[in-house]
Design a protein around this nucleic acid. Sequence first.
DNA 1: CAACAGTTTAGAACTATTCCAAACTATTTT
DNA 2: AAAATAGTTTGGAATAGTTCTAAACTGTTG
Lengths: 140, 140
Amino acid sequence: MTRERSYSGLIARLKVGGLRPTRQRLALARLLFEREDRHLTAEQLHSEALEADVRVSVATVYNTLHQFTKVGLLREVVVEPGRSYFDTNVDDHHHFYFESTGDLQDIPKDQLHVAELPEPPGGTRIARVDVVVRVQDIEP
Amino acid sequence: MTRERSYSGLIARLKVGGLRPTRQRLALARLLFEREDRHLTAEQLHSEALEADVRVSVATVYNTLHQFTKVGLLREVVVEPGRSYFDTNVDDHHHFYFESTGDLQDIPKDQLHVAELPEPPGGTRIARVDVVVRVQDIEP
DNA sequence: CAACAGTTTAGAACTATTCCAAACTATTTT
DNA sequence: AAAATAGTTTGGAATAGTTCTAAACTGTTG
């Protein structure tokens, strides 16, 4: 079960990544992982934190998002210039991107398949394949 | 032949898009389309223009890139937060993205195929499918 | 519990991009 | 071909998202 993420499990995961389980990191982790798959910007997470009476600075939100990403707890998704989304689902999957609202929605791995991947140029290897299905309203 | 793009053809294309063929737009169009497929940021194009003794403001470079994109002469590619690339190849195709250098390289349509596209959610239709194959150096 | 290394913070700094209102230019009208 | 007009360009200011910085703070280790 990839969806298993208990609170204490998180502490463990942070430790593995060499990150101390601080008040801020734990609070942000709860906000991020206590709900199902989410796609959040740094600003959105910061607002949520303030609303939940978690005092964190913007800088810390950014630091934390990047550290979590490095450790594999999050995945960064780029679909829009000038805004990064962080995806709490780190399984292999792709995205619908709703141009009208700016929302993202997961497309599970088995619902979309990339065939005939070309060889990467010499000296390089494929780190990841991102598919973004851009969707727009039918009556704009 | 999709690669056919003469200078006068450009004037025609601009007219179709309702864009006057001004000095700046024509100069930028030459820089963009007189070489083969390119992936440029606004800043890069602005530098090239200055080097080529084409006096244009940054604002105009941005305006022009967006107008060209709207008219279908360019395609915007987002792979990196905080930076937009404009692709002179508007045919159906995908990209390699070199994480070490930030470069983009086209993957022709026939070298990569997306199978089993899921249905877009009700009330929406697929505007475009972007595949980015992120590639990294083997010995980092 | 002292010492150290890692963390947080406010605010400044930075980068890419957009906005603005005035000056300018291509096109249309007369 | 001059005047009227509508679309363009421009420098600089403004904005948005993100990163940096140096000082204060906190978790961990010995």
